[in-house]
Computed example of a mutant assay.
Amino acid sequence: MGPNGAGKTTTIECIEGLRRPDGGHIRVLGLDPHHDGYALRSRIGIQLQESVLQDRIKVWEALDLFAAFYPRSVNWQPLLEQLGLAEKRNTPFAKLSGGQKQRLFIALALVHDPEIVFLDELTTGLDPQARRAMWDLVRGVKERGKTVFLTTHFMEEAERLCDRVAIVDRGHIVALDTPEGLIRTLGAENRVVFIVDGLFEPQRLSKLTGVTRIETIGERVIVYGRGDGMVGEVVNALTTSGMRFRDLRTEQPNLKDVFLALTGREMRD
C-alpha cells in the first residue's frame, strides 16, 4: 500500500520483469526477473493495473490462446465456473462489464497454474458487490496454496486479505508487518462517535479517565481515548448527565489510521 506516486506499480513491474530497475538486485523464485524473464513468466501470473484485449475475441478464445503460451496449463473450463464467467464464454471482450473483464484477466493470470500471482490494484473502479466477489476469489487462490502479491488503495481490502502489509512512501518501505501488528504498533486511540441533540458540554466528558481529546463537527461528536473502560465511561456520563444523544458507535484503530500516520494527510498527484 502507499499514496499515489509512492512507487507501488513501479516496484511490482520490476519484480515481474516488465521494467528494468535503476539499481539493486531482485530475485523471484530464485530467478532474476530481467535475465531469466522467460523462465520466470512460466511460473508467475500477472494481472496488470490496465489491460485490454481485442474487442472481438471471445472469453473462451482468450483463455484457449493464453493456455497455448505455456508449456503447462490447467483445464480452464473450471476457471469459468469459479469466476462466474461460464455464461459469458462466447461473449466478445468488448461486451463484458468492468467486473467481468477483471475476472477474465484473473483467469488469464491463473490459466498456467502459477506459483505466485501478482494483482495490481485489483478492485479499482469496481462497485462494492464486485469488490467483495474479487475478495472471495483472492481467498480461493490463497487456499490453493498460491502466493498472492497485491497492491491496493483500499485499507479494508488489505486488512481482510493480507497476511503481511508493506506501506510504501516515496520509494521506501516505511512499515512492514501483519495488519494487526501495524495497528498495535501505532498505539492509536479508540473513538466513540455520536450525534448530540441540543447543547453539548464537552467538559462533562473531557475529564473522564482515558479520554484524550474531543472533536465536534456540527452535531457529530468524536471522543478519542485509550483504555478498555473508556467507552463505558463515556456512555455512562452521557446517560447520567441527561444529554440527549443518538447513533452512538465505537470505532477501533484500523489500517487507515496507520497509513495516515505514516504517510501524512496531504494530497498527492
Rank of each mutant, 00 (worst) to 15 (best):
R244S: 13
I195A: 14
L48V: 06
A166H: 07
G198A: 12
V111D: 10
S73T: 12
E251K: 05
E13V: 14
T185E: 14
Y70V: 11
G30A: 10
L85K: 11
G125A: 14
T91Y: 06
R20S: 02
D163Q: 08
F118M: 03
T147L: 14
L79M: 13
L182D: 01
T147F: 07
E13M: 14
L18C: 13
E16G: 05
Q102E: 00
L262S: 02
A261C: 04
G264R: 04
E115N: 05
L29S: 08
P21I: 06
P253R: 05
T152S: 12
C14V: 13
D32Q: 13
R184E: 15
P114C: 11
P179F: 00
G45W: 01
R20G: 05
Y224V: 05
L31H: 08
L199K: 10
I167R: 01
F66E: 13
V52F: 05
P71I: 02
L31K: 06
Q203I: 12
I217Y: 05
M1H: 01
T151P: 06
R244P: 09
T124P: 00
A237S: 08
T9P: 04
L122M: 14
A94Q: 08
V258K: 02
L65N: 03
M267N: 10
L199W: 09
I167F: 03
T91I: 08
K207W: 01
E143W: 00
L186F: 06
K101Q: 14
R132M: 09
F245S: 15
I12D: 04
G23V: 03
R213F: 07
G37N: 14
S51P: 05
G24S: 08
R268T: 00
P253T: 07
R41T: 02
G45S: 08
S42P: 06
L53F: 06
G181A: 06
K101E: 10
D36M: 10
V174T: 03
A39W: 13
L208G: 08
M134Y: 02
A68I: 00
A39N: 15
L238Y: 03
S42Y: 10
E87F: 15
F69S: 09
A94K: 01
C14I: 11
